[in-house]
């Protein structure tokens, strides 16, 4: 049996020889039990594929930046250290080399602004971080989020990259637009307070404006633009590319800043992500019915245990904690 199960998986992975293929075909056709076994292994094999390349793509972008920076350095060194020299002329050479370096340095600065130093800030689950940018902008980074920004902004614009969620209070400077870049859209600002939620694992990216004015530019070739007024939220569904513009509930949007968890007749499955960001646990539901349980609740600065106790009492749900996982199931 051992060999057969493994042979089926190797067949599914396309790693069998012609001989093995023939043998397997004969085995499969010889009885309905065998065919059943084959189908079951196939289902399991297909369902157990867990692969997500987004982290890899991001990591490579960072590595690529490092490689490009290194390449520039290498070419610099290569042009500087050629041709053998006699001892007597060493001083002159050093002096002139220094001069060349200084001059080329100036030219380099003027014609090719050097690769900006990028600073990365990130938060783990249950963690928040306040960041002050050199221009005075205040950012509060939500749990499990990353923010990249240059040490010095360029003269024309201020660009930061966000993965996850953050609240921004941008310092006013109409001549240097502030841009928050996410995987799916750009938010362009002149000076205002707003929240951007762009977690990779969420299918929805949303921009919520508290004060001022922002322009949202969709990523991609056509680059549609949307203007938001205070109190309005724009959400983009990554899966079907639908854009919605609507009023939003300030408390539930910015609740993460004050450790407030607001559940307004939402399904547990929908709030699971928020809970895991706030408390660093993973919620596992026994079945769809448990995940579909709707609740009203408001927690402020509560411990995970209190949150779970309340959920289990109001939703008639039993829970069990194992390490960093919480298993939830409906009580009969």
């Amino acid at each position: 049996m051992e060999e057969i199960l493994l042979l089926i998986t190797r067949h599914l992975a396309g790693k069998t020889s012609e001989q093995e293929e023939n043998w397997l075909r004969g085995w499969k056709d010889s009885s309905s039990v065998n065919r059943q076994t084959f189908e079951e292994v196939k289902q399991v094999w297909l369902a157990s594929y867990q692969r997500d390349d987004t982290a890899a793509i991001h990591a490579f972008q960072r590595l690529d930046k490092k490689m490009q920076a290194h390449k520039q350095q290498e070419t610099c060194i290569a042009t500087a250290g050629t041709s053998p020299v006699s001892k007597s002329r060493r001083f002159a050479l050093i002096a002139s080399l220094t001069l060349i370096f200084i001059i080329s340095g100036i030219f380099y600065k003027v014609y090719y602004p050097s690769e900006p130093v990028v600073i990365k800030e990130f938060t783990a689950s249950g963690q928040k971080k306040e960041i002050r940018l050199p221009d005075g902008t205040k950012i509060l980074l939500a749990p499990q989020s990353e923010l990249f920004y240059p040490k010095d902004f360029t003269a024309e614009k201020r660009v930061v990259e966000l993965q996850g969620e953050a609240y921004f209070e941008v310092s006013k400077n109409p001549h240097r637009p502030f841009i928050v870049r996410t995987a799916t859209l750009d938010v362009q600002v002149l000076g205002t307070h707003f929240n951007v939620n762009s977690y990779k694992k969420n299918s929805i990216t949303s921009v919520s404006l508290m004060e001022g004015k922002v322009k949202v530019l969709m990523a991609g070739d056509d680059g549609e633009e949307y203007l938001l007024a205070p109190g309005q939220e724009l959400s983009l569904n990554k899966l079907n590319h639908q854009v919605y513009q609507h009023e939003f509930d300030q408390e539930s949007t910015t609740g993460w800043m004050t450790n407030t968890l607001l559940i307004k007749n939402e399904k547990l499955g929908q709030v699971a992500e928020k809970i895991s960001q706030l408390y660093g646990v993973k919620l596992i539901f026994a079945d769809q019915a448990t995940a579909d349980t709707r609740l009203y609740a408001r927690f402020k600065n509560e411990s995970l245990l209190n949150v779970l106790e309340t959920i289990s009492a109001t939703g008639n749900i039993a829970y069990r904690i194992e390490r960093n996982k919480v298993y939830l199931t409906l009580k009969n």
């Binding site: 051992e2 199960l5 493994l6 079951e40 399991v44």
Partner: peptide, 17 residues
């Protein structure tokens, strides 16, 4: 490696079904 693979696939198959 094969023993581990067999244990994995048979456990997943049994418990899944």
């Amino acid at each position: 490696v094969k023993t581990h693979m067999y244990r994995a696939i048979s456990f997943l198959k049994e418990s899944y079904y």
